[in-house]
Design a protein around this nucleic acid. Sequence first.
DNA 1: GCCAACGTTGGC
DNA 2: GCCAACGTTGGC
Length: 218
Amino acid sequence: MPPKTRARVSKRAADSGKDDDGKTAVGKRKKTGKAKESSVSAGSPEYCHWLMKSEPESRFENGIDVKFGIEDLKALPNQTGCWDGVRNYQARNFMRQMKVGQLAFFYHSNCKEPGIAGVMKIVKEAYVDHTQFDKKDVHFDANSKPDNPKWSMVDVQYQRMTKRFLPLSELKKYHLQHRAAGGPLKDMALFTRARLSVQPLTTEEFDFVLSLEDKEPL
DNA sequence: GCCAACGTTGGC
DNA sequence: GCCAACGTTGGC
């Protein structure tokens, strides 16, 4: 059985050279079992902003620490890393829609204070996540074969910290307000698709969240 | 540590 | 292709 873990990033720097060409992941893919694969072509909106979750606090999975917070991304060469370890089809499919230059929130999950810590940029589009073939990796997937890889990743580069940390609790208050009275966060995936580790934001959602930087905490 | 929510698996 | 059982996510 494939590991069904939350999305997580390794401490690996992204520039390690050997990546199978970045385009294979985006093109045709075989149907893989029963998981629903949303497709861009089927009239779904094309998103251009994202939110990606990772855990900033130490947690051990099979004896391996999966901690990877925004400070860890910042510390990598070129402040760039590959977002490996995503083992959920919807999350993977969103990564496959990402384009170079697009912005994503770095979200801290499963920690003291969950919320948005900073902004990063997509610097390489989807390509094969090599950790799926690595028996020693937490995210090894015995069902995935190199001639038909299941999982993809993108490279992200640190851009900046948000001017202040934007806690989940605050975002949730806005979400509830907006759901009741209308507003940009009424359908935010963070709340409507709670467990999705890579998720899209509309421009309105993204801009509204960024505008909170300059506001007093709610 | 609890547990609700929800994605995935597998029997039928 | 349905759906109950199972396992994981992730806030609290």
